[in-house]
Design a protein around this nucleic acid. Sequence first.
DNA 1: TGACTATTCAAACAAGCGTTTTAAACTCCT
DNA 2: AGGAGTTTAAAACGCTTGTTTGAATAGTCA
Lengths: 227, 227
Amino acid sequence: MTRAEADQAVTRQRLLEAAGQEFAERGFRNVTVRDICTRAEANVAAINYHFGDKEKLYAAAVHYAHLCATRHDVVGAVAAAKALSPEQRLHAFIRTFLTGILETGRPAWHAKLMAREIAEPTGVLNEIAQQTVRPRLQALSAIIRDIIGPRASQQTVINCARSVVGQILFYHFARPMLVRVFPNEPLDASRLDELASHITSFSLAGLRGIAADLKKLPKTKGKRARR
Amino acid sequence: MTRAEADQAVTRQRLLEAAGQEFAERGFRNVTVRDICTRAEANVAAINYHFGDKEKLYAAAVHYAHLCATRHDVVGAVAAAKALSPEQRLHAFIRTFLTGILETGRPAWHAKLMAREIAEPTGVLNEIAQQTVRPRLQALSAIIRDIIGPRASQQTVINCARSVVGQILFYHFARPMLVRVFPNEPLDASRLDELASHITSFSLAGLRGIAADLKKLPKTKGKRARR
DNA sequence: TGACTATTCAAACAAGCGTTTTAAACTCCT
DNA sequence: AGGAGTTTAAAACGCTTGTTTGAATAGTCA
């Protein structure tokens, strides 16, 4: 690799990192290219030179975040825990997912960027849906089905999955409000274990309750209770 | 009231409605004053004339939304159901809250505006926190305590409240992703009953599970199990 | 070394934004 | 009817934004 190519690589990388953090923290529209270039210690024109335009930089940042995320991913953590009980796998899923939400600064802007894109799509949302969300949903659905049993309808599994993920992502989306309503709670990585345990306990009980409800109404053979 | 005053009032009101819907749907930064004025069939200068500037219009829209929301509010619905069981009151809370999230168009941009402000505060968040969120949290906390009993710590109640609200708001924040991951699900008002029932069942079971866990660990007299 | 390419940089550009200005249109009161 | 006060309308202003330009710099390779 030539020196020039190395320079290009290092500037590109700095832009990618700076853009990822800025975008994750403040959103696509609220971040200016000058903000990013200042943080990356690069010239204003660097973005257009290396990536074409702001949108392509954003797409590259999302793609990069996905690569980073899949390295030590939620799905990976769950797969590695294949030998564990469904309850333990649920805890692993929740804890790993929540880590990316509660962590601050450099190491975990990936999850925040994903979450932001989920709420305010910018065109690369479909890519995220296919590459990041679907596999996680698959993993979570498998765990949930292990817990509530094969008689539950697919719709029930999905509703439960959304209940679990909703509890987790709440700590991302509602953060500005949470710090105002609960000013004495840190709500950062120091609470990870406590919050992960709570969500796991709450969700486990919820899932078992749903499963118990199904047994009381064995009408439609369990499956396909949908409308 | 003079004719001029009536005209002023009607234009102001049209601006307020148009702004509320635009802001709720697309966010403060993504909406231009020209968008609002076009929708309200008013001149560009109307906003600055009637409200001063764009931010004050936004604040007025939030305030107006709060007024509309408190008319047939979550808290009101719960208070009216004071005679009901905690389980029924939980269902009423969830269903009323979820209505504002799932409803489309005119009648229910209030909840969406609130939710948007929760995720991306613009300066009036403190007002919302005090006027809208705190009373709802109080109402929900009371219901939760009725269900899980007096031995639970305040922190446990709060964690549970966040678990319930997280499930509900998820259908607002994650909507763009949800419609992509579940393209065959409507996720609008037609699903209100089903989703409200699911969240209620899931949460009720979750709460009872938390309560049961407390009885198995009566170490610290229940209260103050924090940290 | 010297032509050639790749990268950085300061400056300027064009478009979109919120806002202001200025004047016209309208209503009200005597 | 006519002046005063209020609301609407069109145009333009100033600022910020993303982007482009063209020169300056550094590195490669014959």
